[in-house]
Write a protein that binds this DNA or RNA. Structure first.
Lengths: 202, 202
DNA sequence: TAGATTGTTAATCGATTAACAATC
DNA sequence: TAGATTGTTAATCGATTAACAATC
């Protein structure tokens, strides 16, 4: 158990983005700069990196390339992660084309759908496959992260099938509360919830 | 200043969902049930509702319809909120059709795009308009919440225009860090960040 | 040496939870 | 009255921040 706090993990992508976007010339970066990028306090950054066991140099800062590698390793993207998208409708198609995914370590390897008319299509170079092929593809370790972009009513049955095939990382865009067994990680992106929280502020 | 904590505000949509989905017959609900729905502790729920100034009845529970109304009011959805979507590509089209938006208090009133070929189309009953019409529509108070679903490079200029037209609530799906003046609320949904956080767990 | 910046301690802040008297 | 459940206090937990000695 590495045991980073959830709050720390949630900040790592911000740090990483800055490090990725850094000018070629820079090889050092300060906690102050990282803090500005993530919108947090510099002491907070230093504590995060210290929790990561990453040492800087007093008076100088942190070695940017090494820090980038360290964060990528911690996030599990030191190797490429293979993502499968379920649902080849507008949402799935949009997600398949999301800019910068590849640069951030993720490869979309398949889109699954159940509509015969769509199967066999290509969406931005990604083949649309029959959902029935999913278990066999999992067997071959074709993907490790599943993005759910199907209609609300189809989400839970799909997720049951995914979990049955050993998928443990799920990002859900369907407006449905998912129930999963322990050990399966689900992150939920819900448009209504986002709008309601926004709405509170104005 | 009402002054609910961010943590409390983030839980209100979960409570509201349960209350909305409640069987017709039920008119009372316990902190225990609300807690189960939101995945939190019952004491936490009681504290949240107490912060809201909402009183229950000892030995009985909370009046479900009144609580639903109270939360809706707190979230600013006691009246309907009008949402405009910017970008009529796959993502904008998918968001316009998101199930349950209307039930949750939101009306998608317009889709804006800059491509002449798309302008004049209808997407699920919503007209696609020229972005150039946005300032005039704002003047008429046609919408109050903006969803950004344009390519990354177009996001910041669009947001500048929105802010210039007085928009203060923005939900951004473009993979771009937005800079906005104080008083403007932005919520960011970023696919890479979600995948990275998931990736950490497996 | 002077200036910059880390690493860490201690203080603070904020949020969660257990516990239980109040009371329906 | 007995059972259920709230409302709130006090304890706990966890995360943020100020501050500063260490040190490049």
């Amino acid at each position: 158990m590495t045991g980073l706090s959830n709050a720390t993990v949630a900040r790592l992508p911000s740090y990483l983005r800055l490090l990725d976007d850094l000018e070629g010339g820079r090889d050092t970066i300060s906690s102050e700069e990282l803090a500005a990028a993530a919108g947090v306090n510099a002491a907070n950054v230093r504590r995060d990196l210290s929790d990561l066991g990453f040492q800087g140099t007093r008076g100088v800062g942190y070695a940017a390339p090494a820090l980038r590698d360290r964060i990528r390793r911690e996030l599990g993207i030191d190797r490429r992660r293979r993502v499968a998208i379920f649902g080849a409708g507008n949402l799935g198609t949009a997600l398949a084309g999301y800019a910068g995914l590849s640069k951030r370590g993720f490869d979309v390897v398949a889109l699954y759908d159940v509509h015969p008319a769509r199967i066999g299509d290509q969406v931005r170079g990604v083949p649309v496959q029959d959902l029935a092929e999913m278990p066999a593809d999992r067997e071959k370790d074709k993907f490790d992260i599943a993005i759910v972009a199907v209609p609300a009513g189809a989400a839970q049955p799909l997720v049951n099938a995914l979990v049955g095939s050993g998928v443990r990382l799920i990002l859900n865009f369907a407006p449905a509360r998912l129930s999963v067994p322990p050990g399966v990680h689900v992150r939920q992106v819900d448009l209504s919830t986002e709008l309601q929280i926004l709405s509170y502020h104005g």
